[in-house]
Design a protein around this nucleic acid. Structure first.
Lengths: 196, 196
DNA sequence: TTTAAAAACTAATAAGCGTTAGTTTTGCAG
DNA sequence: CTGCAAAACTAACGCTTATTAGTTTTTAAA
């Protein structure tokens, strides 16, 4: 059978990981077989092992690629000099962009991290916990600043993260509303509520 | 081995379904084996088949129990005479209560419905679509009433449903905040936003 | 054109899967 | 106590799984 085709500057492992993300998204990690994956890549299953170590290594690659991207972004925002409201708005918009451009990987990281093996499972949960802590800190500062209402910061973070995560449902109905519209409406709704 | 113990007025199938919900929640449907389930129930795997038809029947039972509960509730609310804001508030509180009291089943219905077989998969998606449509209708009416801001109803529904669904993360940190506090904060945040 | 490494292949392994068949045990009604 | 149905058991089936071993083909540099 033909060799694995790589994009410019991409390794063959990267090609496999990308196909794995699509497969794991549509069938879930446990229900996806290496034979399924091989078929999508265009190769026999054992050939995959010339490029990767194991099935679970693929899940690790996906989850940590996503995790590290978000950690980088929150550090950058935290160190910037914008107002708290503007920082939160930027973060929400970043989530929505990531959701639009890296949907497969984000979906898998959100839904399949449970199947990571130790110590990767603990590492991943630590990354997520730290990300949430950074957001709670941001909102707490905003309340002290009187930029934000005296809400519960934990509930606010939970709500914001859940809302952007819920955009996976939008992905299935892209026709209904454009990304730009969606961004503006969601930012407005979370910041200002729905009641007149 | 001992027989399956039933609660008062409960069938043995119901006991198995409840254990299945806990198992599927913690390991996912595909990674859960009938031998895993049998061990939790306290019986050998083939004995389960005296009470159930198949593994996928268990998933069906869980998903439709949840789906029907929410459909019943939305019909009841829709036919009531409260204001739109009060109706939305009631629905949010209902979701939070269900999340607190039937967490395992709701989690499984939200995460594992993908593994339903036809025609159950289509039926389930129809239920969910209808539920969302009812909510969109409710919000649209609220905007016409001028009870609500002229937001995009679809985005509002997406945000509300995602927020309550995100309460699964709260389930893991119950200590941090009580259900009552959480309800009040989340309702307030969704209705009124976070900006001062 | 030769050579060596990279990457494909086929065949096979042991383990685990959902489920069925056939048998034995259990618990209650007569 | 007897008999019968419900519900447990053991053994086994055919299939799928991730992965390994060993071999052949492909690619590109010398």
């Amino acid at each position: 059978m033909a060799k694995i085709k790589t994009e410019n500057n991409g390794t063959k492992k990267a090609v496999i990981v990308q196909h794995a993300a699509m497969l794991f998204k549509s069938k879930s990690y446990s229900a996806s077989s290496m034979r399924d994956l091989a078929e999508r890549v265009g190769v026999e299953a054992p050939s995959l092992y010339n490029h990767i170590g194991s099935k679970s290594e693929l899940l690790q690659a996906i989850c940590f690629k996503v995790g590290n991207t978000f950690i980088e972004q929150i550090e950058q925002i935290t160190n910037s000099q914008y107002s708290i409201v503007h920082k939160i708005e930027t973060i929400i918009r970043f989530h929505i962009s990531m959701m639009a451009e890296n949907f497969d990987e984000i979906y898998v990281a959100n839904h399949e991290w449970k199947h990571l093996k130790e110590p990767y499972l603990s590492d991943f949960l630590n990354i997520r916990r730290n990300y949430e802590k950074s957001l709670v800190q941001l909102i707490t500062t905003g309340i002290e600043n009187k930029e934000l209402q005296p809400i519960n910061p934990y509930v606010a973070v939970l709500t914001i993260l859940s809302a952007v995560r819920g955009l996976e449902f939008w992905q299935r109905n892209k026709k209904n509303i454009s990304k730009q519209e969606l961004e503006n409406h969601m930012v407005n709704l979370l910041l200002n509520g729905i009641v007149k």
